[in-house]
Design a protein around this nucleic acid. Structure first.
Length: 409
RNA sequence: GUGGAAUUAGCUCAGUUGGUUAGAGCACUGGUUUGUGGUGCCGGGGGUCACGGGUUCGAGCCCCGUAUUCCACCCCA
């Protein structure tokens, strides 16, 4: 038997109902906030991700599905969604056009990782990106959107918040941090020693307890923000307070993608195991110019659909549509005619085998139909159809013509 | 990429120190005396015990390898 590749799953009917429910909910929220759908290719030039996500990141460094295609191009399956959207934004010269551009997207992402619950090699994200808005109100908007989506889905969460500074305050802080690391680098773990060179900010979320004990005394970026970053961060907290969105400041929240600056946030759930981050995002004002566009402020987030699907509370299924059956073979053609008419406006499922009324009622119940409609010998002779409302437990007989005339259904 | 656990019916799981024809619940399906659903009662189908080797008179059970899933690390959505 041939089976799907490791960490790559099929989505079957039951799961897809959940998936579709999520997409409808999230898309509706995004549209209400004024965002428009964008779709970009699953395959992109490798250079795109090296320049955006960053070569020092684990994602680019060791998790990409990268290969050379038949045209000798170095390509890879997208490991995240932002880079492609920014590429499209620049390629279609929306940066030069100016103004505000707000997009949402969803689709498959690929990372070659060791799978476990909530971590797949092919997984799905829903994300939004906003270009051209400098105001921290847009950062708050992102967080409110995620909160809205999670609320609509009945999902509880904790929100972690941090500021990563910008090109005015981050470099100076980085130097302070590096000298701190050097002051104690004889007792740090190997990873931290490596990070000191590749991406020193990342030592802060090292999971090693010994390192963490030392970092308690490390300089905190949040205490070294420049005036602009500090006031934006204060404003952001104020907006969230005004909208009753609870958050906790996490000075170690640095995020694994290199392009973030200023606002960084992460939504986590305590109910899905160790892969607990369900959404994450932040501001990335420099990324557009890194990808050869005109400098444009930008902010966005992404949400892990599979992780959310574990948490979604589905609304109770309601009885819907018609189940149609015949009690003898001669009645089936009439049943098929009725079904054809009904389908112009609603769900109609036909059972081809003739069987007893009881068996048909069971069948209708099984597919959760609202109505069970049956034609047997009696109905055929009278030119009628028997219909039972399975919810109200009421039954009646209609002339067949009532159900074969589109105006009536 | 590192360490550990698991894999038996569609699903959740039993299966004794290695010993006849591998079980249960749920689900599916049929009947319940002839046209009334869910929940009663009776029956039925469904298993290469993950896959491939090995040990043994004999393997679901012991050993080795492979695959997948899960847990922790790591990482992140």
């Amino acid at each position: 038997m041939i089976q799907s590749l490791r960490g790559m799953n099929d989505i079957l009917s039951n799961d897809y109902e959940r998936y579709e429910y999520f997409l409808n909910t999230a898309s509706t929220v995004a549209k209400r906030y004024g965002f428009h759908y964008i779709e970009t290719p699953l395959l992109e030039e490798t250079a795109l991700f090296k320049r955006s996500v960053g070569e020092s990141s684990d994602i680019v460094g060791k998790e990409m599905y990268q290969f050379t295609d038949k045209g000798d191009n170095d390509v890879c399956l997208r490991p995240e969604g932002t880079a492609g959207v920014v590429r499209a934004f620049v390629q279609h010269k929306l940066d030069k056009k100016g103004g505000i551009h707000r997009f949402y997207y969803h689709g498959a992402m690929f990372r070659y990782e060791r799978p476990q619950k909530g971590r797949l090699r092919q997984f799905h994200q829903f994300g939004v990106e906003s270009f051209g808005v400098d105001s921290v109100y847009e950062d708050a908007l992102m967080i409110m959107m995620v909160a809205d989506i999670l609320k609509a889905l009945g999902i509880g969460y904790r929100l972690k918040l941090n500021s990563l500074g910008d090109q005015h305050c981050m470099p100076a802080y980085r130097e302070k941090l590096v000298s701190f690391i050097e002051s104690c680098d004889d007792v740090l773990c190997d990873d931290c020693i490596r990070r000191k060179v590749t991406n020193p900010i990342r030592v802060l979320d090292c999971k090693n307890d010994a390192c963490q004990n030392l970092y308690v005394n490390a300089p905190k970026l949040i205490h070294h923000l420049c005036e602009g970053c500090q006031s934006d961060f204060d404003t952001l907290k104020e907006i969230l307070d005004n909208h009753a969105i609870a958050y906790e400041i996490d000075t170690n929240l640095v995020r694994g993608l290199d392009y973030y600056s200023k606002t960084a946030f992460e939504f986590v759930s305590d109910d899905i195991g160790s892969q607990s981050a369900i959404a994450g995002g932040g501001r990335y004002d420099r990324l557009i110019e890194f990808l050869d566009g005109k400098p444009t402020p930008a902010v966005g987030f992404a949400l892990g659909i599979e992780r959310l699907m574990e948490l979604i509370v589905m609304p109770e299924a309601v009885r819907e549509g018609y189940y149609l059956g015949a009690m003898d073979d001669e009645s089936l053609p009439q049943i098929l005619k009725v079904a054809e008419t009904l389908r112009s406006t609603q769900k109609a499922v036909v059972e081809y085998d003739s069987k007893s009324l009881k068996a048909h009622l069971k069948g209708a119940d099984r597919i959760n139909a609202r109505y069970c409609a049956v034609i047997g010998e009696n109905e055929r002779q009278e030119g009628t159809i028997w219909v039972k409302d399975l919810l109200e437990k009421q039954e009646s007989t209609f002339p067949l013509t009532h159900f074969t005339t589109k105006e009536n259904v």
